[in-house]
Write a protein that binds this DNA or RNA. Structure first.
Length: 498
RNA sequence: GCGGCGUUCGUCUAGUCUGGUUAGGACACCAGCCUUCCAAGCUGGGGAUCCCGGGUUCAAAUCCCGGACGCCGCACCA
């Protein structure tokens, strides 16, 4: 635990020092929950997003779109966020403690209905003589804490910054369905910034007020689209912690075969386990080790308002324990039906095989990019015996493809190195000619650059260079002309397992 | 929001209790020399309104008050 603490501190220090990420607006004192990604962090995150797109969009032949960050109020009335994505809170006038109204009333055996008004709560507090549990004083009138950021569109029209990218897909469903050749199932993805006005964000890069979500809205007809036709996912094993297990007091996940879990009716539909298996392969491609992640079913009281069933993908982080990096929600037809009701547009589609109109159901895999970035870095961070710190992250996620160094900082070496840089113009190259060669390797290792090409004396006689590997420090000789092919091979990402 | 602790060059930190010279160091960085492979060496250099605001004092990094931010606990976490 002592060394574990140390590791996360080293990582945070490295992140600031080398330009991965740091708290935003520091010259104005900083703002909680806002993060700036530096030159190195930007590239790693962008490559992480690209890998996600490869796994969750291209490999499935899904659509990907980009919708506005700002939405007019009715969108978030229809989605239920305006009333549900909110906490009704009570403040003690004396000691200043804040309580969630529903929790406080629950403790004295009163269940308040969903969406109860503030007046209703105030009446209950008044009539039941509920006092502050901390100091016993009178509680103030209840107030609403909305987790969405409010804004104004034009003059006077209330809008919200999106708390998820999903509504930008649901609202466009009719057109997206046509673009998808009017057939189900239909997957539409989006990667983008979302905003949540947390009361008190903590945990550095883990809990942010503005962050990046990568999500798929997968639309299907529950009667006819019962699961993927390619059944390879059924044979895969995943670390699973079900709600049923948790209710029995079990806290450890179990490795279960998907086919067997389905037979035990663990999942409300087969698309959820399919996405869990796809995610397993994605985490492996991030080099998150086996045993460091699990899929935990959320208990009914932990679920978002729109979810009938919800699994979290949790990664174990040294500083924060099991941390949610992705959620898999069965949203049913909740969202499309909500938009039908509020907008008056018909969101149902015709299924020819059953000759019926249905409002499609939705399964939503949703990933937090910054949390995955942090997990990637934490599991990549290595500190060896002589104190060398380096990031052992997958080559295809590193901030540069390759370094090119002159062995000596002499003009002829530098000139030759620059020739090689120019030759490798299909790669993102880190060129560095300052300090000793060892120092340059160390600097490159620290931000996870997987390979280094060094121009040495022999280069001048036979046009070969050394190719050094970050994780092993080993080197091999290779001709300059075969570098592009060799690097391409080394940098190619792993493929989805299903 | 509450309570406790903290915030000093890019980074880590000494100094704060006990107010008093140019706020010291390490690493990093820059220039030059040296150097045929893993944070080497030599010389030189730049770099800190001591988180912000106010107060006490002849004098504040240091003491007091308020705020911001961070960590820990409480609460919260769609």
């Amino acid at each position: 635990m002592q060394t574990a603490k140390k590791k996360s501190e080293i990582l945070m220090e490295l992140a600031k020092r080398r330009g991965i990420f740091w708290p935003s607006y520091e010259i104005y004192g900083g703002v909680k929950g806002l993060l700036t990604l530096g030159n190195v962090g930007f590239e790693i995150k962008r490559r992480l997003e690209n890998l996600w797109i490869k796994y969750f969009v291209y490999s499935r032949n899904f659509q990907i779109i980009e919708s506005p960050v700002i939405g007019p109020r009715p969108v978030y009335v229809a989605s239920g966020h305006e009333t549900q994505f909110t906490d009704k809170a009570l403040k003690c006038g004396k000691c200043g403690s804040i309580f969630r109204a529903d929790h406080l009333l629950n403790e004295i055996g009163i269940n308040i209905p969903e969406g109860a008004s503030l007046e209703y709560i105030d009446d209950l507090i008044e009539s039941k003589l509920v006092k502050c549990p901390n100091c016993g004083e009178k509680l103030s009138k209840s107030f609403q804490w909305l987790l969405m950021f409010k804004t104004e569109i034009g003059v006077g029209d209330l809008g919200y910054l999106r708390p998820e990218t999903a509504q930008g897909i649901f609202t466009e469903f009719k057109r997206l369905y046509v673009h998808g050749r009017s057939s189900l199932p239909l997957g539409v993805a989006q990667v983008g910034r979302v905003f949540r006005n947390e009361i008190s964000p903590r945990q550095g890069p883990i809990r942010l007020r503005e962050f990046t979500i990568m999500e798929v809205e997968f639309f299907f007809d529950p009667d006819t689209n019962t699961g993927p036709s390619d059944e390879r996912y059924l044979e895969e094993t995943i670390p699973l912690l079900t709600a049923e297990d948790q209710e029995k007091g079990i806290t450890e996940s179990r490795k279960v075969k998907v086919r067997e879990a389905i037979e035990r009716n663990v999942f409300s539909n087969n698309w959820i386990p399919f996405f869990l298996v796809l995610t397993k392969g994605f985490l492996e491609a991030l080099w998150i080790p086996d045993g460091a992640y699990r899929f935990r079913e959320k208990l009914p009281n932990e679920r978002a308002h729109y979810a009938k069933q919800l699994f979290d993908c949790e990664v174990f982080l040294e500083s924060w324990g099991w941390t949610e990096v992705a959620g898999f929600a069965y949203r049913t037809d909740y969202d499309l039906s909500g938009h039908m009701r509020v907008s008056g547009e018909d969101m149902s589609v015709f299924i020819s095989s059953t000759n019926k109109k249905v409002v499609p159901h939705v399964v939503e895999p949703s990933f937090g990019a910054e949390r995955l970035l942090y997990a990637l870095l934490e599991y990549g961070l290595r500190i060896d015996e002589d104190g060398r710190t380096y990031l052992s992250i997958p080559p295809y996620l590193s901030p540069f493809d390759v370094s090119v160094f002159p062995l000596l900082s002499k003009p002829e070496f530098i000139a030759k190195a620059k020739e090689v840089v120019a030759y490798l113009d299909n790669f993102k190259v880190n060129f560095d000619d300052s300090g000793s060669i060892g120092r340059r390797y160390a600097r490159a290792d620290e931000i996870g650059i997987p390979f280094a090409v060094t121009i040495d004396h022999q280069t001048f006689s036979d046009d070969t260079v050394t190719l050094r590997f970050r994780d092993t420090k080993e080197q091999k000789r290779i001709s300059i002309s075969s570098l592009p092919a060799e690097l391409s091979r080394l940098l190619s990402p792993s493929k989805p397992i299903v």
